[in-house]
């Protein structure tokens, strides 16, 4: 009962937030709606006993990623951020329609079969479901997934180089003021 309530409430939050992201005209509102969705998902995580992920979700997503969005929006000025437009393909709207309707059909189909168990597999790894999941997660992170874990460092290095390179002032033009952020 409580589970259902939590699920439904969080799901509504998630979906309203998601729709808000897409529909809001102001990017700041989109960002806030995104935070809302992220919270909803964090709640779902908690409901699935993925506490650690719930916390990380909030810290990384809400605390860092969306803040970064807001930062950029403020740096650019909201007007410019709002008017920023790019188009990628002439038939984008049609593609969107196709994509949305197609996938929604799939989702509806999924809802129809949702009562059934989704998968027959069970427990290849450790057993879940205690407060010790954090420890389990750490173990899995440093055994089965240690290589992936090390790879994330590569990703972060790339992201750092990328960020520095991209926002560096062009050499010829007149630099305005000292940039935010420390040394390179």
């Amino acid at each position: 009962m409580v589970d259902t309530l939590v699920f439904v409430a969080a799901a509504v939050i998630c979906l309203v937030g998601a729709l808000g992201v897409v529909l809001a005209r102001n990017p700041v509102h989109s960002a806030l709606m995104l935070v809302m969705t992220l919270f909803g998902i964090a709640v779902q995580f908690v409901a699935q006993e993925a506490h650690f992920l719930a916390a990380v979700q909030v810290i990384v997503y809400a605390g860092a990623i969306v803040v970064l969005f807001l930062f950029v929006i403020m740096l650019l000025g909201v007007d410019r951020a709002q008017n920023l437009e790019m188009s990628f393909l002439p038939v984008q709207k049609w593609a969107a329609l196709l994509f949305a309707s197609g996938s929604l059909a799939v989702v509806v189909a999924l809802i129809v079969v949702v009562g059934e168990p989704v998968t027959g597999v069970h427990a290849m790894g450790g057993t879940l479901g205690g407060t010790d999941d954090v420890r389990l997660l750490a173990r899995s992170l440093f055994s089965d997934y240690v290589y992936a874990f090390e790879l994330t460092s590569l990703l972060l290095v790339i992201a750092v180089i990328g960020a520095v390179v991209l926002v560096r002032k062009p050499k010829q033009t007149n630099p305005v003021a000292a940039e935010d952020g420390g040394g390179t």
Partner: peptide, 13 residues
């Protein structure tokens, strides 16, 4: 959670 496997959570990370 369904599989009883922590791997899925690690992946989320």
């Amino acid at each position: 959670r369904t599989l009883g496997d922590i791997g899925g959570q690690t992946v989320v990370f």
